[in-house]
């Protein structure tokens, strides 16, 4: 606990970001208790209504309470992003371990596959997956996740390449350890912490991608409350009810900003400081 406190004092901005993120996660988690109304409850008097005591963030076109929808919407957006990052991290780490550990042409094949995925713009890859899997939240999570697999694979592969000749790995090989054992017991634990740091940064990208697909009408389906979809629904009323799109966008931006600042702090001091000494 004291270590955490010391770190917070050293990096006040990151501590603030962590606090904001925690608050957002809690708000989404506790939405059923915090929200003034169910996300799909319609109050005709609140149609495109400006923020007021009854509806703190105003109402949308159908008269649904925006604050409630943002609280509930966070659950969908954050859940999809979490699922996507987990998928990408697990698959990416696996591919990276294999690509880094396999000798000869097999390693090259894996590297080729990673490079091939990188040859696609991330959002294009996500759109392709949605096009082929059809709508739905599972497809959304897979689509968002697939695009960041190569990033993890590259990171893990480069770590494994340098670790393979480390004394503790060579010792394990000399003792007759089989490849799966060495991968799981010796290499995997060594790559976990940089992997998690990358995942933090990636979480921000996943939130934006998930919301972007929602905004395109290819993510969560109405009447689900989802941040990207809410922006899409609100954008038609920019002149009369700017709050209907402003607040969901603010929620996305705030979350991603907190995640990015936290991720930056976790990935260590800015690379310039490290690289300059190599």
């Amino acid at each position: 606990m004291t270590r955490l406190r010391r770190r917070a004092r050293q990096q006040p901005l990151a501590a603030l970001a962590a606090g904001v993120l925690l608050a957002i996660l809690l708000a989404a988690l506790l939405a059923p208790w915090l929200a003034p109304a169910p996300p799909d409850a319609i109050d005709l008097a609140a149609q495109l209504a400006p923020p007021s005591p009854a509806h703190p963030l105003g109402g949308d076109f159908y008269g649904r309470d925006l604050l409630s929808r943002i609280l509930y919407g966070g659950r969908v957006t954050l859940l999809v992003a979490t699922a996507a990052v987990t998928l990408a991290m697990v698959v990416g780490a696996l591919v990276g371990l294999l690509a880094g550990y396999a000798q000869g042409w097999l390693g090259q094949v894996w590297v080729g596959l990673i490079d091939l995925l990188l040859a696609f713009p991330a959002l294009l890859l996500a759109l392709l997956v949605v096009a082929l899997m059809g709508p739905g939240l599972t497809a959304l999570a897979v689509a968002v996740g697939v695009a960041s697999i190569p990033g993890y694979a590259r990171l893990v592969r480069s770590l494994v390449l340098t670790l393979r000749s480390a004394p503790f790995v060579e010792a394990a090989v000399a003792l007759g350890g089989a490849a799966p054992h060495i991968l799981a017991r010796h290499l995997l634990p060594a790559v976990v912490s940089p992997l998690l740091a990358l995942a933090t940064l990636d979480f921000g990208r996943a939130i934006i991608s998930a919301a972007a697909l929602g905004f395109l009408g290819l993510g969560a389906a109405p009447p689900t409350a989802e941040w990207g979809l809410m922006l899409y629904e609100g954008r038609g009323y920019l002149a009369t009810a700017p709050w209907a799109s402003a607040f969901p966008g603010l929620a996305i931006t705030l979350t991603v900003l907190a995640v990015t600042i936290l991720g930056d702090a976790l990935t260590g001091p800015p690379p310039a400081v490290n690289r300059g000494r190599e």
Binding site: G204, I208, A211, A212, F215, G228, L231, Y232, R235, L238, A239, P242, S245, A246, G249, L250, I252, T253, V256, L257, V259, T260, I261, D264
Partner: peptide, 22 residues
């Protein structure tokens, strides 16, 4: 620069449309 990375295009775009067009 960090803010630029965090703000999604579809939100900054809406804000600019609101300001410069609406």
């Amino acid at each position: 620069a960090v803010t630029g990375v965090a703000v999604p295009v579809f939100w900054s775009g809406l804000l600019l449309i609101w300001l410069f067009s609406v």
